[in-house]
Design a protein around this nucleic acid. Structure first.
Lengths: 153, 153
DNA sequence: TTTTGTGCAAATTGTTTGCAACACG
DNA sequence: CGTGTTGCAAACAATTTGCACAAAA
């Protein structure tokens, strides 16, 4: 993804402390998991496609299968250390959870995404709640539209 | 889809007048197109998956291939008589354009969608523009969250 | 009769599942 | 050693593409 705006600090200091958190949930410490975490850490909070994770691991180390990546990301998500977002079409994108959630805006024209902290969306959320009775969340699916650069005028 | 709220009147009186509009764009009048339009008309503005269109046509008439449906829906969309929306995961959903656009809210928990007229979203759009400089559109991708029934409390 | 459009098959993309071998604890 | 995990292959779902044949205009 092309993600503008700052990525938040990741909630774990390093791969080993993330692995510790996983082990606390009964998950074993394997090479595949270390490779996935390494790729996610390297992305510094920016969400990655599975393909990118596989590729990143393959560059330095042996093969890492996409199936394993999907299975592990699901487990990581269940364990609460990863989340994923869908930006427009294209594959799901995964990131380590940071201190506090991130919510997204996505530009349909240029395909660029912007992340921001939930507080910045609170006003929007409030209006949506008032108007429609929905509790809007832009963590899993973003607000879609045109960014300032792509908007007409 | 499970779509609550009223569907707007479709911008064409019947299949033949829709076909006329297509012919004006240089598109030929074929059986496959008639079948697709019939299914869309029967849905009264509620968006349908390609699979549903194929199934609807197959019930009464000969086979209608998904590839043809995709190709035609794309052509119809280009001609301005159809639009499509992505509600959560799952396939794209197509509907005839009505008098005025529709924008959507989608509940991540129960999977139900709600459609409303763009004016009802104007306040939300305004806040998003103010806050983020984005021109939000919920016609192609909805506002995602939890509906009143599914929200905690 | 010349295009445009069709059905069918096959390719693509993103993701899931079955399974035997493997390796963590 | 026993079960959680892996890679690989195959299945799947949604969508796209290639192509010879059918059918609008």
């Amino acid at each position: 993804v092309t993600l503008s705006a700052s990525s938040p600090p990741i909630a774990f200091a390093d791969i080993d402390s993330a692995m510790l958190a996983l082990r606390a949930q009964g998950l074993r410490m394997t090479m595949a998991r270390r490779l996935i975490l390494r790729a996610l850490f390297a992305a510094a909070g920016d969400p990655l496609a599975v393909e990118a994770i596989v590729r990143a691991a393959g560059e330095q180390d042996g093969a890492l299968d996409a199936a394993s990546v999907y299975r592990n990301l699901e487990a990581f998500e269940h364990a609460g250390i990863v989340r994923h977002v869908h930006l427009g079409h294209g594959p799901g994108l995964y990131a380590l959870v940071g201190e506090g959630e991130r919510e997204y805006l996505y530009c349909e024209r240029c395909g660029r995404a912007r992340a921001a902290s939930p507080e910045e969306f609170d006003e929007v959320r409030e209006i949506v709640a008032e108007r429609f009775g929905y509790t809007a969340r832009f963590t899993h699916f973003p607000i879609v539209g045109l960014c300032a650069d792509c908007a007409p005028r």
